[in-house]
Design a protein around this nucleic acid. Structure first.
Lengths: 193, 193
DNA sequence: TACGATAGAGAACGACCGTTCTCAACGTCA
DNA sequence: TGACGTTGAGAACGGTCGTTCTCTATCGTA
C-alpha cells in the first residue's frame, strides 16, 4: 500500500481543502464555483476530497463552520483587547471598519449563503442561523455591562453596516454605526459632566 | 398572420412574465429556478419570453426593477400616510413589521440577489445598488425634518432588521429597530416635558 | 522479484440549464 | 381557396456540474 493516508495527512488535507473552498466560495459564490475548481485550488485529488466530505453541501457546511470559528475568534480577540465596557462595544465597529476595507471584502459569507441556498439546503440554513445567533450573543455579552437596556440595536446596526458596506463597496457604514452606538450609550447613561 | 402579437398583448405578457418570475425567483433563488419553470408559471411560450427579454439576466434585471417600483411605492404610501415627521420615521418600521410577518417573506430580494450574483453579473449588481441607494435616499428624506443629525443610523437599523428577520424567521427585529430609532429621536431633540 | 492493495489523474455519467431550432397548425390576406 | 407568415409546443444543442468509475502507477511486503 502506497502511503495509506495517515491521520495527520487527513488533518492537513482537510485544512488545505477548507482554506481553498472558503477563498473560492466567498469570492465568487457557492453555486458559481465547481468542485473541479476546488480540486485545482486545494491541490487535492477529487477522490480524496470526496472521502473527506461526501457531498459539496457537506464541504460548504464545514467551511462555514470553520470560517465562523476564525471570524468570531478574530473579532473577540480584537474587542476584548479593550477593557472599558463602552469602548469595548465601540471597538466592534472599529474591527468592522478594518474588515470592510480589506480588498477582498465581499460582505457576510453567511448572509450571502442564505441568499443563495436559504431555501434549498437545510444544513446550510442551520449553519447560517447558528452563526448569526452566536454573533448576536457575543454582542449581547459585550453590551450587558454598559448600561444600554438592550443589545438589539447594537446588533442590528452591525448587521446593517455589514450588508450596506458590502453592496455599496464603501466602508463608511462602520463609522456611521459606531456614531449611532455612541449616541445610544450617551442616551442610556450620560457621562458625568 | 395569426395574431401578430399586438403591443397591448406584449404589455400583458410582460406583466404576467415579470409577475411569475418575481414570485419564483424570490421564493427559491435565481439560480435555482430554470427558464422552463418560468415558462410554466407564466403560461407564456419560451419563444415569446425570449422575444421580451433576450436573456435570463435581462429578465432578472427587469423583475428587480419592477419589484423596486412596487416595493418602494408601497413603503412610501404607508409612511406618507403619517403626517408628524417623527411618527413618520417610526412608521417605516411598522411597515417593515408587517412585511416580515407575511408568510412568504424571505428577506430582501436585492440583498439575496447580491449574495447569489454579486460578482458574476454586472447588470444585476448595478440594479441592486440602484435600489439600495433609492431606499437610502427615501429614508434620508423622511428623517431630515425630524432633527436627527444623520439619516444613516435609521437606514442601517432598517437594513439590519431586514436581514436579521429574514435569517431568523422572526419579525421581532422590526420592533427592536423601531425602539432604537425612538431613542435616537429623543436624544436628538427631547420632547418637551 | 512478484503480488496486491491503494492512490492519483482524469474520463465518463447522468442530470440539468439557457438558448435555439424544427415543424406542424393556424389565421389572414390576395 | 390557397399560399404565406407567424405562432406554440417541445425537441435539440452545447455546455456545465456533482459525483463515480476506470485504469495505470506506485509502494510495502514476502
Amino acid at each position: 500500500m502506497p502511503a495509506p493516508v495517515t491521520e495527520e495527512q487527513s488533518r492537513l488535507d482537510r485544512h488545505a481543502l477548507l482554506d481553498a473552498a472558503e477563498r473560492l466560495f466567498y469570492a465568487r459564490g457557492i453555486q458559481a464555483v465547481g468542485m473541479d475548481e476546488v480540486r485545482a485550488a486545494s491541490g487535492l485529488p477529487l477522490k480524496r476530497i470526496y472521502r473527506l466530505f461526501a457531498t459539496k453541501e457537506d464541504l460548504v457546511v464545514a467551511m462555514l463552520r470553520n470560517r465562523d470559528q476564525r471570524w468570531r475568534g478574530n473579532l473577540a480577540a480584537y474587542v476584548e483587547g479593550t477593557a472599558d465596557p463602552r469602548e469595548r462595544v465601540l471597538a466592534i465597529f472599529d474591527w468592522l471598519a478594518r474588515w470592510f476595507a480589506e480588498p477582498d471584502f465581499r460582505g457576510c459569507a453567511w448572509t450571502n449563503a442564505f441568499g443563495e441556498l436559504g431555501t434549498s439546503s437545510e444544513p446550510v440554513l442551520a449553519e447560517v442561523r447558528s452563526h448569526k445567533r452566536a454573533f448576536h450573543d457575543q454582542i449581547a455579552a459585550w453590551v450587558r455591562p454598559t448600561g444600554i437596556p438592550s443589545a438589539e440595536p447594537v446588533h442590528l446596526l452591525a448587521e446593517g453596516a455589514i450588508v450596506t458596506a458590502a453592496i455599496t463597496g464603501d466602508p463608511a457604514p462602520a463609522r456611521h454605526a459606531r456614531t449611532a452606538v455612541a449616541t445610544l450609550l450617551e442616551a442610556a447613561a450620560p457621562e458625568p459632566g
